[in-house]
Write a protein that binds this DNA or RNA. Structure first.
Lengths: 144, 144
DNA sequence: TACAAATAGGATAAAATTATCCTAAATAAA
DNA sequence: TTTATTTAGGATAATTTTATCCTATTTGTA
């Protein structure tokens, strides 16, 4: 469904948000340990998230990654996914046709509408805040 | 969502079903032309579909691929997808956790349930027959 | 039986994704 | 100002997925 990079990106962002609630910055090392991901690869993904303004980075000593506290409740899961995997999962044809719409549908076009709508709703209605709070309270987990 | 191999596999199977209604066998060459896919790669996918008993092959002169007419209405889209991509899309965790269930859920576990259910319903309730008939009637398309 | 046509399958190659390593640039503190 | 720390980013490698090529095997027909 999502690429490995995207999976790491979502988990990393959740962890950064959780730490940001406590005004703490985190390093790729700490993040990759916490979400069980390869460190250097995770660092690349963090760079992409910074470029897409999902998270902030602070260079130099005592630096690290963070998210403004006020911003955490405004970030939707969809933004994280789009930053890494793009919008293909929303817009692309389920069977890979270049052109696929009501006028020229692929064989599963109509069938797929509900799945895509549900996915879209899920990604648009889920906020980073609730995901981070569930991790914080031990309701959900980032690894194992 | 699905791999390229799976996309080709679904389209190829639909085309074979359509031709099988007319008691015609088809070759990888004809199939790849019709669904706009690389021929040799498509042939590999057809082999996998044969091994999984989704389609039949007839070797030698005047051979080709086909599906028993009576079987076409009994094949579900899910069987084609499972034959090529496996059941990860049904069973795997949305964020790639090895263990992810109600007792130890990933951050999007609950959110994902509806998406997966919708996808599952779609794949289980769609038959090869209806997909093939829609192609035959020009209601949907296999390429462009 | 010989031949032609067609699938099966092994060996490679190309491309994309995932992953690692090393150096540059930035920055806070001593 | 120097040093230590930390992100940015280029280069490269490993793995997986996608794709191609060639030969073996099967089988219907002349």
């Amino acid at each position: 469904m999502f690429s490995k990079a995207c999976e790491y990106g979502v988990k990393a962002t959740i962890f950064i948000a959780m730490k940001s609630f406590e005004n703490k910055r985190v390093s790729p090392k700490e993040i990759s340990k916490e979400i069980n991901s390869p460190q250097a690869f995770t660092a690349k993904i963090l760079q992409a998230l910074v470029r897409h303004n999902v998270i902030d980075s602070v260079k130099g000593a005592y630096g690290g990654f963070k998210i403004e506290k006020a911003k955490i409740s405004t970030i939707k899961l969809s933004e994280i996914v789009k930053a890494i995997d793009g919008d293909g999962i929303y817009k692309g044809c389920g069977l890979g046709l270049k052109q696929c719409d009501q006028d020229h549908p692929c064989p599963v076009h109509d069938k797929f509408v509900r799945v895509r709508d549900e996915l879209n709703y899920m990604l648009e209605s889920t906020t980073l805040e609730e995901l981070a709070l569930n991790i914080k309270s031990g309701t959900s987990f980032l690894k194992v």
